[in-house]
Amino acid sequence: MIKKTVFSGFGGQGVLMMGYVLAVSAMKDGRHVTYLPTYGAEVRGGTANCTVVVSDEEIFSPVASTLDYAVLMNKPSLVKYEPLMSEGGLIIINSSLVSDSPSRKDVGFVRIPANDIARELGSDRTINMIMLGALVAKTGITTQDSIMNGLSEIVKAKKASLMELNRKGLQKGAEYALKF
């Protein structure tokens, strides 16, 4: 099994962190992973994206010419990545920020009002966890437990309250995605 996921949005939305969390979590599951961010001049401009490949065997190219999953945080990302989706792939959009929908019918689509859910949870910091929760729940690319395990390695100050907030975000995102 090899799955290629892109996370894309504006710089500052934490799309690189989302990809990083997924990559570390999958690594800790013992899977092969690659994480490839955009770099250089582009990073300092508007858009940011990263491609995470998770596989049960050696990964050759870390670049995705076709995508299995896309987690998108702005409209330009939808325009850019919709054509690259493989048949049967899945697009997850933060619908608090993007009202558009993909036009392709051969690709799954989930709208997650992540900013609104985050507000209910009382912290904008959970937006990315909500999106990741949705991805994990819909695709099974890894588990919520793995993500928490990955987070515990990444987040240096493991404040219990913060980890609890992250767990809630993941859970809410998952619940919302499964109802969608």
Binding site: Y20, V33, T34, Y35, L36, P37, Y39
Partner: peptide, 10 residues
Amino acid sequence: DGMIGQMMEP
């Protein structure tokens, strides 16, 4: 190259 340099792997 930039890909080898920027890409993260275990």
